[in-house]
Structure formats: C-alpha cells, structure tokens
Amino acid sequence: MIVDLPHYLLLSAVLFVLGFFGVLLRKNTLVIYMCLELMLIAATIALAAFSHFNDTLDGNVFVFFILTIAAAEVAVGLAIIVALFRQRGTVQVEALNHLQH
C-alpha cells in the first residue's frame, strides 16, 4: 500500500486533534502553549504534503512563514506568561479568572 496524500492529511488531522484536546483539557498555561504549537505543526504537515503531491512550491513557502510567525508568537506569549506569573504567582488557568463576571 503506497503512502499517498490522504495518509499525510489523516496524520495532520490526528495531530491537530491531539493539540486541540490538549488546549481544551490541560490546566497549565505552558502546556496549553505547547499544544498550540502542535496544532501549528499539524497544519504545516498538510501544507507540505499538498505542495509535494501537486508538484508546486507554494505550500513549502507558506511553511516558512508559519515557522517565522510561530517563533514570534512563542517569544511574545512566553513574555506574557512570565509577566502574568510575576503579577499573580501562578500559571494555572483556573486561578486566572480575574476577568470573569
């Protein structure tokens, strides 16, 4: 059985679902951030697979942009988390409910 485009798409979808459930179910903000990165990575697999099996380069170039933006996002997000920890003393999401109500 030859490995084809649907295999890669299925893998990308399953990886995305794993990251999605991690974001939904975990309590630690840092781990939620890692799961967000997993979802971005899943999207890059789909882009690279489409690009390869359709013999174009556009998907790969978009993977470049996704990597750049993910790096910027991680830098800003982790700075926000550190600032939050200095203010509140915790990174557990159930303790960070000061904007509710």
Binding site: L30, M34, E37, L67, A71, L78, F85, T90, V91
Partner: peptide
C-alpha cells in the same frame, strides 16, 4: 533549527523559571 533549537529551549527555560 527554529523549533527544536530555539522554541523548545525557550519553553524549558521558562519552565525552570516558573513553578
């Protein structure tokens, strides 16, 4: 280079900094 080298290392640093 970007993820394993920079992003994961940054995550580990922040985990060490926080609780």
């Amino acid at each position: 280079l970007v993820y394993a080298g920079a992003v994961v290392a940054l995550f580990l640093f922040i985990i060490m900094l926080l609780d």
